[in-house]
Structure formats: structure tokens, C-alpha cells
């Protein structure tokens, strides 16, 4: 698998998690090994944190296995709106 870029990773997340909004931050300084992501998706509805993380981990299994660090925050569209569209 070629190295992930912010854009390709973002696209993958958008597709696989039906995300309305995805931000991907490369924390590696460019080597493509560490990403922090925020995902806003209706799929998170009714799921607690652990279930959300597992959903993301499973959907991005290969990608996560190939990088060094991965940190995620997941919100439903309603939660995201309620907190004013920011973390």
C-alpha cells in the first residue's frame, strides 16, 4: 500500500463511513505516518465512544495498521451542530 496522504485518507473515510464531514490532520510532519481525524457521520447515532471507535477501526483496518499513530474523534451530525461545528 502506498503511503497515505491527507487527501486520499479523507476520501477513504468519507466513503466508508458515510461521513458528512471529515478533517484529517497530518501530525507526522509529512511522512504520512500519523494522522488525527475528526469524523462527523450519521453512522455514530446511538453508539457509545467505544462502539464508534471500533466502527472506525474496522472500516480503516488496513490504513491504521500501516501507519504509526492514529487518533480519532467521532460525532453525529446533531452533536457536531450542537457544539457549534468545532471540537
Amino acid at each position: 500500500m502506498s503511503a497515505l496522504t491527507v487527501d486520499t485518507f479523507k476520501q477513504i473515510i468519507q466513503e466508508r463511513l458515510q461521513a458528512e464531514l471529515v478533517t484529517v490532520e497530518d501530525m507526522s510532519g509529512g511522512c504520512g505516518q500519523a494522522f488525527a481525524v475528526i469524523i462527523v457521520s450519521p453512522l455514530f447515532q446511538g453508539k457509545n465512544k467505544l462502539m464508534r471507535h471500533r466502527l472506525v477501526n474496522n472500516a480503516l483496518k488496513e490504513e491504521i495498521a500501516g501507519i504509526h499513530a492514529f487518533t480519532q474523534k467521532g460525532f453525529t451530525p446533531d452533536e457536531w451542530a450542537a457544539q457549534g461545528g468545532k471540537v
Binding site: K49, L50, H53, T71, Q72, K73
Partner: peptide
């Protein structure tokens, strides 16, 4: 019981 990783613990 598995609780989670750093993100989950931070948020909790």
C-alpha cells in the same frame, strides 16, 4: 473489561 485507548480515556 476493555475500556479503550488514549482518545477514549482522554474524552472520558
Amino acid at each position: 473489561e476493555f475500556v479503550g485507548g488514549c482518545d477514549i480515556i482522554t474524552s472520558m
